[in-house]
Write a protein that binds this DNA or RNA. Structure first.
Lengths: 206, 206
DNA sequence: CAGGGTACGTACCGATCGGTAACATTGTCA
DNA sequence: TGACAATGTTACCGATCGGTACGTACCCTG
């Protein structure tokens, strides 16, 4: 009975999965929580319960594993970002604010580690490094997506509002790590609302 | 003639200074530009033109050198932040906006590396690590200082406005690194003005 | 000319880094 | 059942990590 079920079934992701998958998942967790440079390949494979050659058959180098981790992170981020859109079809403002409220809560709670992509860009300032490149590409895509949404919500200067919101988002990512619970990210939602309201009409002359 | 001047004079900081000073300055540059974890002590001493024992005579460990670098950075930051106040005595809003305009320009130009303290918190997520601690302490001080200024400029909810501005500032630090010239930080000044204006009076009900 | 304190360099330590060659084991399908 | 391909394992590589024991040149004071 214990083994009546076919073990090699590829659609039953049991706890002890394929080595490559375990490596990917373990690397994701460790890279994100501890930082990329802080984690060696030895620690990844030992925590994943496999050995180094298994890692190097699945990935050409640590740098490629890093890039794969960041592409994974980017994909998951886009899901988190777009998910609230399902409940607010054709309402980009409500969609965006729903994500910001969610992020606000997450980023002002204890143990938050920010955005893996932002962290990677900081850990690898060299623009030639794959980690830097994947991070930057994701941020550029986010900037464009925000511009799109701000245009759709009728902002007076969509690109400017998008950049302002991007500053608030990135600020939440990093200050969430520095302050933990009760950090500045708690005001993200209200601040974004205020900024959006003030950016829909023509700017008032000071 | 060549040595008529007393060599051991401590008040003539010539180019080849004391080893400890060269180490401090070199470590500052390298840690800031390349990242702390990316730079080994070997590279610091070789670029400084000294040897390792000189480093370990001045600093107990690499961690202590890191902490010293961050304390240095914090000191220089406070100077940059407070400097515009001299031209705007008793006008915290003008003072703050002057700094933000300056930061906006710096953070949206090429090769910007952000805030060394923010970067350190991200590179060392462990709250027990000295680098993390020094970084967080500096950020907490900044948060309080911003709250002070917002109170002085008559904000309706000073703490909330201060946190919103802190998000914009931190966002400028990190996005400056990801986007380089023309990045989102270009809107920092205008966005902060808009946010401040919208935060002086009672928040409008939406 | 001692003598001692200061300041710096030579040479080395064990540990860990990313990465690999060679071998053992397993599952799949004819 | 036998053969192949995929996957896992043991043991090791040179390079670099942070850190140190020890020797030496220098200068001021007596």
């Amino acid at each position: 009975m214990s083994r009546s079920k076919s073990q090699p079934s590829p659609e039953t992701p049991e706890t002890p999965r394929r080595a490559a998958d375990r490596i990917r998942d373990t690397a994701f967790d460790l890279f994100y929580k501890e930082g990329i440079r802080a984690i060696g390949v030895e620690e990844i494979v030992s925590r994943a319960g496999v050995t180094k050659p298994s890692l190097y058959r699945a990935y050409e180098s640590k740098d490629e594993l890093i890039a794969a981790y960041l592409r994974d992170y980017d994909q998951r981020f886009r899901q988190r970002f777009e998910a609230p859109g399902a409940e607010h079809p054709d309402d980009p403002k409500a969609h965006l604010l729903a994500y910001l409220d969610y992020l606000s809560k997450r980023a002002s709670s204890d143990g938050y580690r920010g955005c893996g992509l932002t962290n990677a860009v900081i850990e690898y300032p060299d623009p030639a490094h794959p980690a830097h490149q994947v991070g930057v590409e994701s941020k550029q895509a986010l900037r464009e997506r925000l511009g799109e949404m701000c245009r759709a919500m009728g902002a007076y200067d969509p690109a400017e509002l998008a950049d302002g919101l991007l500053l608030l988002i990135e600020g939440s990512y990093v200050s969430g790590q520095a302050f933990g619970q009760g950090g500045p990210a708690r005001v993200l939602g209200d601040t974004a609302r205020r900024l959006i309201e003030a950016s829909l009409s023509r700017p008032t002359e000071t």
